[in-house]
Every structure is written in C-alpha cells, then in structure tokens.
Amino acid sequence: MVAGCIAVAAVLGLSACGTASGALQPTTAAATPGSASPQQQPTGTAASTTAPATGSDGATGSGPAAPSAAAKPGTSGVSGTSGTPSASGTSGTPGASGTPSAPAQPAATARTTSPATTPATGTPAPPPAHPGTATKVIGSTASGGRTVALTFDDGPGPATGQILDLLAQYHVKATFCEIGQNAAANPALVKRVVAEGHRLCDHSVHHPQPFEKLSHDKAVYEIGAAHDMIVKAGGPSTEVSWFRAPGGGFDADNEHIAAGLGMSSLGWSVDPRDWARPGAPAIVSTVQQQLKPGGVILMHDGGGDRSQTVAALKQLLPWLVAQGYTFDLPAA
C-alpha cells in the first residue's frame, strides 16, 4: 500500500515539475526607442534575425532594420514573400502516455503555438504554422474613392508628438504601426494616440528582418508579444486592428498568426522612403507622384531623426486637402 502511494506521488510529481514547451523568448537584442532603423534598405543588406539590427543612422544593435526594397505605386507594400517559415513550435501536446504537459507561461513573457493556450489577455493563441505566400495584404483605404490613409511606422518616438499636433490641426485620423518595445517605453504617447482617435497597428517587438524568414515560433513571439505590449501601454480597452510586417515581409504564416489575434495584414501603396531622409522636398514630391485615390501612404514617426518627415507633412496635409482628398483608415 505504501509503495503504491509512493509510486503515484512520484508520477504526479514528475508531471507537475515538467516545464511548458513551446515558450518563446526574443532572439534579438531589444532596441533603444528612437534609434531604431525604419523600413527600407537596399537589397542584400537586411539584418540577421538572430543579431541586433543595424539602424539607418549607422548605429548597430539599436533597433529595427530596414526592408529589402521600397514599395512601388499600386502595390501592397509586400517584399520578399517567398520565404516559407518553419513548422516548428507545435510541441506541448500531451504524449502517447496521456500525461498532460505543464501549464504554459503567461502571455506577457512568452507564447506557445498550441491553439489550446489562452494568453493572459484572454485573446486566443495564434494558430499553428501555415506555410506559403501572403495573399491578403491590404494596400487601400476602407472607403475607396478620393480618400487617403496616412500610416506611421517604428514609433512611438520623439517625432510622434509633433505629428499628432499636425494631424489635430487638420482633423486627420491616422494609423500608427508601433514597435512593441517602443510602445512599452512610451505608454503616454500610446495613450495619446488612442485618446485622439487614431488607430494602432502591430509592427513586431524588435523589427527583425527578413521577417518572412523567421521560424514560426519567432514570428509568433514577435507578433503576439508586440500586440500585448501595445495593449498594455494603451490601456485595457486598446484595440490593435492591423499587423504590418517589418519591411513588408509578409507570408501566409505571419499573416495567419496576425489573423488569429484579430488583426488584418497592412501594406501600403505609396512609399516616399522618408526613413532615408532624402529631404522634405523629395518626400513631398514622391507622395505627389505615387498617390492615387484610395492610397495608403507609408511614413515614419520613429526609427531615427524624423524632422524631415515632420517638415514634409506640413506641406502634404494642405496639399492633400487642396487636391480634394479626404482622410480615411486602411481597409480591414
């Protein structure tokens, strides 16, 4: 009788001491807000997903890397969609013996890929790996017609407040695609974005590139943890409606992960490459040349010095109004 109880206790103790499998931790170094590199960079220079990114300002290990190519007019802002992610990260399923695995770690620190896992926020966990190329990336406004959607990436940062001031002056609502760690470091700015009626978009935790080459587990962490960071910074009722892959690196897997968290995949149709700081006149000229009704403009409020973006926006807002454009949100 005693020996039997000891055997049962040993079995139960072994089960209770097991660790949750599939828990993910970021593999890239956390970037310092305001110094991250934004979207685009020449092909062949994308940063490794396992090492700190090189910023457009020349600093290493300070933030997100730039994408492989600029979006062309009329495109969805997708680059490098041929990457097929790893189908790893499906561990944590009870084995053949029927012994259950240990509980998953809280969503605030890690995510698993098991559909049965429920993060601390109450949002369903992302689905399993879904290899393939992206098919549902948005590059147009919700209403169509002579409308335009303004989107700002890589913040919140030092320029975010100035951009919010300009948008308020022209009664414009925009979409801010925020990096998770920057949102966590600047919760007051996230709250201001929400309070002034703008919308939020998930832009990953660390902006790793090429994003479409990440393993499934890493993509789950980058998308899911960033979503949680943004919601926490904005407050309990904060909504994150879109996901924008760093560099436009969408594929079916990260698109599927985002959809599992209730987010649409957001691209763009106009890219003035303001991240490269070509000068305010060049930024304005590119927008004027590329914009068509229903377009989505990609700009940046973080990732480095955005004074040229602010200067260009001061010219673009009155120009857009004079051209008869009204401001809209991206399609969902």
Rank of each mutant, 00 (worst) to 15 (best):
P131G: 01
T133F: 03
K136W: 00
V137L: 03
V137D: 01
I138Y: 00
G139E: 04
T141N: 10
A142E: 15
G144P: 12
G144N: 14
G144D: 14
G144W: 14
G145D: 14
T147V: 10
V148M: 11
V148K: 09
L150M: 14
T151W: 02
F152T: 11
D153Y: 05
G155I: 13
P156C: 13
G157F: 06
G157Q: 07
G157H: 07
T160L: 14
T160W: 07
Q162V: 07
I163C: 00
L164Y: 06
D165V: 07
L167P: 00
A168Y: 04
A168Q: 13
Q169K: 15
Y170G: 01
V172D: 08
K173W: 02
K173G: 09
K173H: 15
A174S: 08
A174Q: 03
A174F: 10
T175D: 09
T175I: 03
F176V: 02
E178P: 08
I179K: 01
I179H: 00
G180R: 04
Q181T: 15
Q181A: 14
A183K: 10
A184D: 11
A184V: 01
A185L: 06
A185C: 09
N186W: 04
P187Y: 10
A188F: 09
L189T: 15
L189P: 02
V190D: 12
V190P: 05
V190K: 09
K191L: 11
K191P: 10
R192M: 07
R192F: 04
E196Q: 15
G197P: 07
R199T: 13
L200W: 12
C201R: 02
C201N: 06
D202I: 02
H203W: 11
S204N: 08
S204T: 15
S204G: 10
S204F: 04
V205R: 06
V205Q: 07
V205F: 09
H206V: 13
H206G: 10
H207E: 15
H207N: 15
Q209L: 15
P210C: 07
P210Q: 13
P210K: 06
F211N: 06
E212G: 10
E212R: 01
E212W: 01
K213A: 14
K213W: 07
L214V: 04
L214N: 12
L214P: 05
L214T: 11
L214K: 06
S215G: 15
H216P: 05
H216E: 09
K218T: 12
K218I: 03
K218W: 13
A219D: 05
V220F: 11
V220D: 08
A225L: 05
A225S: 12
H227R: 08
I230L: 04
K232D: 13
K232H: 15
A233V: 09
G234W: 08
G235C: 10
S237K: 14
S237T: 14
T238C: 11
T238S: 09
V240Q: 03
V240D: 04
S241V: 11
S241F: 12
W242G: 00
F243A: 03
F243I: 02
R244G: 06
G247N: 09
G248R: 03
D251M: 00
D251L: 00
D251T: 02
A252S: 13
A252Y: 01
D253W: 02
D253A: 07
N254A: 05
N254F: 00
N254G: 04
E255F: 00
H256G: 02
I257A: 06
